[in-house]
Design a protein around this nucleic acid. Structure first.
Lengths: 209, 209
DNA sequence: TGCTTAAACTAGCGGCGTAAGTTTTTACAC
DNA sequence: GTGTAAAAACTTACGCCGCTAGTTTAAGCA
């Protein structure tokens, strides 16, 4: 086939297919040849639309981050804004866990990532936090959110009960997988709660740097 | 060359070389052929000592985790134990950042990882925390520690100043890289402080589940 | 001494990202 | 209208990758 009358590919279609493939089968499954097959095309054809594979994956990451609600910083107290944003971010990552390793390295040059950083940092600065502390708080929230999204804590333990025979306190660790949602959500909620209440305490005491 | 009079490879030598290669050039650089070259040997020879590449990487992860000091839970208050352990873990990961993605998925079947989980969870249980809460606290600490080790927050922002022209609060974000250590360490220290003091408050109020 | 096992080798499979060059269609300038 | 340049598909191929299979030779043991 030479150039078709109607283009088979567009950037949008490619990103959509890549996102679906990553969600369904993981980052490793999303190879250029496999992605092309999914789109009914040969591998190298993708290079007519993107220069590298990294650009495609980056576009998927951008689309995911764009789903996070950053409007919550307008009209809300900084504490409430932070809490609602973190929950939204957490929910988006929980829906697309396979792309998290890409996000974990930071916003890079992605517009949605930068817009999010701007919203978070801006809200903290306007609340009166020092520039250094606002940066720390932003970093800290990223640690909690991507750290919790990166790999299930519950699934990080092997399901083989015998493995824990010699660890007296871990004898029920093989049951963790069965309570995966409760464990992972509980830990995130606890962390968010602890961080925001203790930041709030400091803030109310006038310690803002 | 057939079988040499003195074996060229041992598990120890392979793991040592793999750790050095990963530290120096990253996980991607540590291919079987490259690692073999580093050891003065042909690629497939490694399979006489390990069944898969994953086993080698896992052994490197095990060696790194084994460096974390878990003796701090003995004789210390749970708060102090937690703080000292977290600092030790953080320091170890800071020294070997390229292996962090492997650890971030949990202890798996690695003895050092399981021993660490046992020590942390055991200390929390013996302090009086409920099983569910002890699990949450353990998960939370992992989120903070691996989240912060996974990628520098400061380096997550591109160094190109023009990139931030349209983000009013981010106009100095390109300077972050220059203060990398202060930013990343500051955020981790803040997080550790906030989590432990607010957990301590709850504990002292008798809220242990 | 002979047999088994260990530890190196070489050759090769299928997959990866990507580069180069080909073909045909479209879009636009003259 | 026609000639030309660009676009979008294609095929082929390069050098990596993890890993398998089969070969060779030395070591260790009965």
């Amino acid at each position: 086939m030479a150039r078709p009358r109607q283009a088979l590919l567009t950037k949008e279609r490619i990103v959509e297919a890549a996102a679906a493939l990553i969600d369904a089968e993981g980052l490793d499954a999303c190879s250029m040849r496999r992605l092309a097959t999914e789109l009914g095309v040969q591998g190298p054809s993708l290079y007519n639309h993107f220069a590298t594979k990294a650009e495609i994956v980056d576009a998927v990451a951008e689309a995911v981050v764009a789903q996070v609600d950053i409007t919550v910083f307008g009209g809300n107290d900084w504490r409430e804004g932070l809490r609602l944003w973190a929950k939204s971010y957490h929910a988006v990552l929980a829906a697309h866990p396979n792309i998290v390793p890409v996000l974990a390295t930071g916003p890079g040059r992605r517009p949605a990532g930068l817009a999010m950083a701007e919203a978070v940092y801006g809200a903290l600065i306007e609340a009166g936090w020092s520039r250094a502390r606002a940066t720390h708080i932003g970093a800290l929230m990223r640690y909690l959110i991507t750290g919790s999204a990166l790999g299930s804590f519950a699934l990080g333990f092997d399901a083989d009960p015998e493995l824990y025979d010699h660890y007296p306190h871990l004898h029920r660790a093989h049951e963790l997988a069965a309570h995966r949602a409760a464990v992972d959500e509980g830990a995130f909620e606890l962390g968010l709660d602890l961080l925001i209440t203790s930041l709030s305490d400091r803030y109310d005491q006038g310690v803002r740097r």
